[in-house]
């Protein structure tokens, strides 16, 4: 996990994103417990309430579940769901920016497609 403390994204939102990211990369494994609020709070010196707020977002999205007396666990199938939502948001999150930057640099549609192909062939 890493956080950008002066990003425009509030810290609790970053915590939610980082937890999801960790689930995708396999840092947090499905059906297994993730670190507690206190552990994350201590590790990154973030107020526990902020950490909890971030975690609760992920719980609300259905990727984490609270098991009473045990802690937070990654829901089965969460990784696939996160991947899907990331794919769904790929256009909005990346493609739009890519194209707007390309336009700023006077890169044509064909040139951009060529560059993307080059990237894939590497």
């Amino acid at each position: 996990m890493q956080f950008k403390f002066n990003s425009s994204e509030p810290i609790y939102r970053q915590i939610a994103d980082q937890i999801e990211e960790s689930i995708v990369t396999g840092g947090f494994i499905e059906d297994k417990q993730i670190p507690s609020t206190t552990e994350i709070s201590k590790e990154f010196h973030i107020n526990p309430a902020t950490v909890l707020k971030g975690m609760n977002i992920v719980v609300g999205e259905g990727f984490l579940e609270k098991r009473r007396g045990l802690g937070m666990f990654v829901v089965k199938g969460a990784r696939e769901k996160i991947l899907k939502s990331k794919r769904d948001n790929f256009f909005a999150n990346y493609v739009i920016h890519l194209i707007s930057e390309a336009k700023n640099l006077n890169i044509s549609e064909d040139e951009l497609i060529a560059l993307i192909k080059r990237g894939f062939s590497k």
């Binding site: 956080f3 403390f5 810290i11 609020t37 206190t38 709070s41 201590k42 990154f44 010196h45 973030i46 107020n47 526990p48 902020t50």
Partner: peptide
């Protein structure tokens, strides 16, 4: 603080170190 929640007041000049705390 996690073990025993209570009110904490931090007066410091090292703002960057406590912003997230």
């Amino acid at each position: 603080y996690s073990d025993t929640p209570r009110t904490i007041i931090l007066s410091t000049h090292l703002i960057e170190e406590i912003t997230q705390i």
